[in-house]
Write a protein that binds this DNA or RNA. Structure first.
Lengths: 205, 205
DNA sequence: TGACATAACAGACAAATGTCTGTTATTCTT
DNA sequence: AAGAATAACAGACATTTGTCTGTTATGTCA
């Protein structure tokens, strides 16, 4: 490769490596070499070492494909959670076998094993910015605090509502004037909180 | 390692490898070996080869750390995209320098290189279920079709609006009666479409 | 010009890693 | 008991990949 002004190739190498890291397969030194047409391995290595020295990359010495982006430590940590969209509401509480689909979440804060996802059906939460077809990510928990949005099992149906309490009684509030709050009967009708909605996603494409 | 019932260790190996792939550093054969305490490299290799044969993994023969999740079916591989939330609006069109944060997306359908994410500021898209603080994932593209939600650069400000056309003229519509549509002036005011919003995410925790 | 820094090259070595051949143990089925 | 299938092991070899030492070119600056 011909001589290039200081920093020029360096920058391109950084962008190349960054791209590869983001796409999931960090390059080997020789892959960088080939990508830039260097005739010596060392040329690629010099750039990589310089980038590490600058703090733009991190690496694990001796290991193959060990270059990483410095800030990525916790960000990249991800987890697959099951989509339960097509499952009958009544079976939601049962153990998950082989869900039809998986969703990728960043599990920095929550334990991925207790998460699942649902597709929202009705328009009852329009006022909270939750539209039909949206995906809600739910953390399994048997109780909630007032004001939180929960997935509850009322009778046979799973529903997304805002959890409230009035005089010690539970109420599930929709965020849409066309709907009425749900007040679980005190007779034996099955009622339980499946979990709390911690994220909402909407696909527009 | 002691003898385990058929399929048992296999499954754990799969989960281990999947976790590592998702976290950005696919393991070497020997890393799998050590993780499971195999005394022979071949033990790890057998499991890995079997998983490839089953179609649960894919690999590039001969290369280091080359196991990947198949893009097909339900488990999609992940991709990191830059969050540009804190960047000045006016600089959005420039090349990405050092994004402070990254977001994990499933890259089945779009090319990760053309995606970025933004944090929504105002309330102008309330009617479309896009609230302040929401994160929008945007695919870079210079044009849009009527009805699509876009991120546009008007003057110095980046804004999220619904793209419409009236008599051949572009209009950017908010989804909130308290706001007025934006009609780009025909004098030299900078106006451009940065991209199309393909996903909306909201964190509730 | 000469010293200095950076870029690029050349050739080699060593460690990491993928791959191969063959063997033994365990479980299940017939 | 015999055979088949799977699991695990042993030891080696070949390739890939990281690393090293030294050299040559190009540009900058005093």
């Amino acid at each position: 490769m011909a001589y290039t002004p200081p920093g020029e190739t360096r920058k391109k190498v950084y962008e190349f490596v960054r791209e590869r890291i983001l796409s999931g397969s960090p390059p080997t030194v020789r892959e960088v070499q080939r990508a830039f047409g260097f005739r010596a391995v060392q040329s690629a290595r010099q750039h990589l070492e310089a980038l590490v020295a600058e703090g733009k990359l991190v690496k694990d010495s001796g290991k193959a494909r060990s270059h990483r982006l410095p800030e990525l430590g916790r960000v990249r940590s991800s987890h697959l959670i099951p989509m339960l969209g097509r499952v009958q509401a009544g079976e939601l509480t049962t153990a998950l076998q082989d869900p039809g689909d998986y969703l990728l979440v960043q599990k920095t804060r929550f334990d991925g094993r207790e998460l699942f996802a649902l597709t929202v059906q009705g328009e009852s939460m329009l006022g909270a910015g939750i539209l039909p077809g949206d995906t809600v990510i739910v953390r399994r928990q048997p109780a909630a605090r007032p004001g939180e949005i929960v997935v509850a099992l009322v009778g046979e149906e799973a529903t997304v509502k805002r959890y409230r309490q009035k005089k010690g009684r539970v109420e599930l509030h929709p965020e849409n004037d066309a709907f009425e709050p749900i007040v679980p009967r005190e007779d034996g009708e099955p009622f339980s909180i499946l979990g709390k909605v911690i994220e909402v996603r909407r696909n527009l494409e």
